[in-house]
């Protein structure tokens, strides 16, 4: 599948934003996060910024962004519609949560706690929907895997956690437990992604051009001539292919830069503390961001659409 930069930016940025929102809500509910408006402003503002940047970027992928509002109507069947509805719905508790924290300086108490918890839930529901857009497509084996959505969620949680951790450290609300939780999340994400990849590699790619054309019963089917000599939409959108060797290298890169490096850096920060730990956290964040973007690029680039069978793919 063609890795569109708008979609990569959307899923990574808004994923991190929802993750950050989730942790700010959870920490303020269960971990005594002080209700200083500044923390609220910076934390929730950052989450909001990331979410909105992502959402806006996703609309730039649309042919008719001015009609984007229509996407809320089909929540009964469409995960994309559900995602849109969830994203918008999430803004309601999110707004309330932010209002209390930033304007009234409260982040606990029945209303505000409910708003926080609802924000956290809606954030993850939204990310879940995003994952399901891909996971629900039977035409792309790399995506119709059970771990696709969980990986989206765990990556959102992990990237949100690193952001939250950085924020807390900058604002002097360091929490060692949360530090370890973040490290654990990163490790879990790495593990899940590794399991996903190994499952993916084991997925039987047993559809052939013979199946796609129904001509397999007469022998091996190979394209003789395509209907057009220059690529068309289907080939541009669905025909993107990354070389296996290249993909292998990128997977290693994702694991090391995206996960191993941040994990080690964060463990180090937990050991040393102090100002250097902020710098190291920033470093971990950048490494993770890079890793997640590459991971998302690979998620598309490695995904092979069944339609490629008509255009020369030997199996899908």
């Amino acid at each position: 599948m063609h890795p569109a930069y708008s979609v990569i930016l959307f899923t990574t940025a808004s994923g991190a934003g929802y993750g950050l929102l989730f942790w700010l809500a959870i920490l303020s509910t269960f971990d005594d996060l002080p209700a200083t408006p500044m923390l609220g402003l910076v934390g929730l503002g950052l989450a909001f910024g990331l979410i909105v940047t992502g959402l806006l970027s996703s609309t730039s992928h649309l042919g008719r962004p001015e009609r984007a509002w229509r996407a809320f109507s089909q929540w009964r069947t469409s995960w994309l519609s559900r995602e849109g509805v969830a994203a918008v719905a999430a803004f309601v508790p999110f707004g309330l949560f932010a209002l209390g924290w930033i304007v009234f300086g409260v982040n606990r108490g029945i209303i505000w706690t409910l708003a926080a918890l609802a924000s956290a839930i809606m954030a993850m529901v939204t990310v879940w929907c995003t994952g399901m857009i891909y996971q629900s497509l039977p035409t792309i084996r790399a995506w119709s895997q059970p771990l696709v959505t969980p990986v989206y969620v765990v990556l959102s949680l992990a990237s949100g956690a690193v952001l939250a951790l950085l924020l807390l450290r900058i604002m002097n609300h360091e929490s060692e437990d949360f530090g370890w939780l973040t490290v654990t999340l990163l490790a879990a994400a790495l593990l899940m992604k590794r399991i996903y990849w190994s499952m993916l590699d084991a997925v039987p790619r047993d559809l052939t051009p013979g199946d796609a054309t129904g001509l397999g019963r007469f022998g091996k089917v190979r394209p003789l001539e395509a209907p057009h000599t220059q690529p068309n939409f289907v080939m541009r959108e669905m025909g993107y292919k990354v070389a296996r060797k290249h993909a292998e290298k990128l997977r290693v890169l994702v694991q090391i830069v995206g996960f191993v490096v941040p994990v080690l850096a964060l463990i180090l920060t937990l050991a040393i503390g102090g100002a250097l730990s902020i710098a190291l956290t920033v470093f971990a964040l950048l490494a993770l961001a890079f890793g997640v973007v590459v991971e998302r690029w690979l998620f598309f680039a490695e995904a092979q659409h069944i339609v490629t069978l008509y255009y020369g793919a030997e199996a899908a």
Partner: peptide, 27 residues
């Protein structure tokens, strides 16, 4: 008149039957 050109339907079609019109912005 209502398509937003998100292209998701083309991803969902195994048969390559949907073609996006880049200029018109719809499927």
């Amino acid at each position: 008149d209502t398509c937003i050109g998100c292209k998701l339907c083309s991803w969902a079609c195994p048969y390559g039957a949907r073609e996006y019109d880049y200029a018109d912005g719809v499927m």
